[in-house]
Write a protein that binds this DNA or RNA. Sequence first.
DNA 1: ATCCCGGATGTCACTTGGTGCCATCACCCT
DNA 2: AGGGTGATGGCACCAAGTGACATCCGGGAT
Lengths: 202, 202
Amino acid sequence: MVMSPGAIARYAGAVMSRWKPDADGRLIEAALVLFDRQGYEDTTVADLAASAGLTRRTFFRYFSDKREVLFSGAGELERLWVNAVTGAPKGCGAMVAMEAGFAAVAEVFTERHSFAKIRARIIAANPELQERELIKLEKLASSVAAALEERGIEAGRAALAAYTGVQIFHLAFARWIAQDDPGGLLPLMHESLEELREVLTS
Amino acid sequence: MVMSPGAIARYAGAVMSRWKPDADGRLIEAALVLFDRQGYEDTTVADLAASAGLTRRTFFRYFSDKREVLFSGAGELERLWVNAVTGAPKGCGAMVAMEAGFAAVAEVFTERHSFAKIRARIIAANPELQERELIKLEKLASSVAAALEERGIEAGRAALAAYTGVQIFHLAFARWIAQDDPGGLLPLMHESLEELREVLTS
DNA sequence: ATCCCGGATGTCACTTGGTGCCATCACCCT
DNA sequence: AGGGTGATGGCACCAAGTGACATCCGGGAT
């Protein structure tokens, strides 16, 4: 299981507090287990909260809604990608800067292949969750586009590069989930991008 | 206002029935007006139903949920695009077949510019509606990909062409909404696609 | 030691979206 | 005349969110 920021902080020598530590992490863990076992629809927020030793009201203090418990990692992903784009070698083109994000993202996912598989299975089984996933990708693309603009790339080209890059990531991620090699995400992204270049120019 | 299928059928010589005709059309109309005037969140389904002379329960017989009342056209859009792809000249490449869809889609939207503007304003103001829009585009892309496969195009290339085409449509549509020329959608789509080719190969 | 403050949690009431079930009631067909 | 049909209304109910307030313990200030 991936540790939440809170979990790490408390693990690192914090004193025993009044409440069991890592409430958000426990909620995420409960969600993964229960959603996968009995389905998203058939799991109530009260179920999740009880499984984590909390109440409904407290769940909504950590996550703005029931779907969000599966998407807490989206912010981190966005930060990673944006930083990679921002830190790409000065003067390189839009797509090259974009691809710097590929590497950063692929690396962080290699240790989470089995986690990602379960999560993907849950999401694939429910349209509400797919909607949330799509809007997270949209947000990601728009942030990456902003990072490209920051590098002096014209807005239109930045948007095209960013949205296409995220689209490629999405597709490659789906292929990566469907296979068994946890390290194969980066090559899949590059292959997909090459394939797109081919399709567009043929 | 765009007439719903029911409205057209009844308009074409149907006899007076027990109920006021075009219930779904009235609900859509009410949604456009009320969502725009007082916001999506601050409009209840009961408000919409009352405005159309119906009850909450009846609303949910026409639309599976509150968001869906703004997306009844998605099916028609998908049919149009898929038919265009299927009917494209035999033997032409993936992207050329895709672009046949561009023309079909652009044409149907030229008469709905002001409608589309209002609708876009409503959607832009609410994340729930943006999510629904994104999943409709996803569904559109996947159907177009299937239509491309039907033409003998390999699955991977079909997916890339379809998702990219829909992405381009999405971007061009946003630009079209932001301007005043109701006929300019098709050129915008082609320009955006050309721009993408340039970004990808530079 | 006492007091107070702050922050994480619990409790409760309430609105709204969404659904299942049954009643109604005009129209149509035989 | 009578029965079927289909769109609608009414009602009860569950689950997702939300706002307001109470609680309760640890830590710091006096």
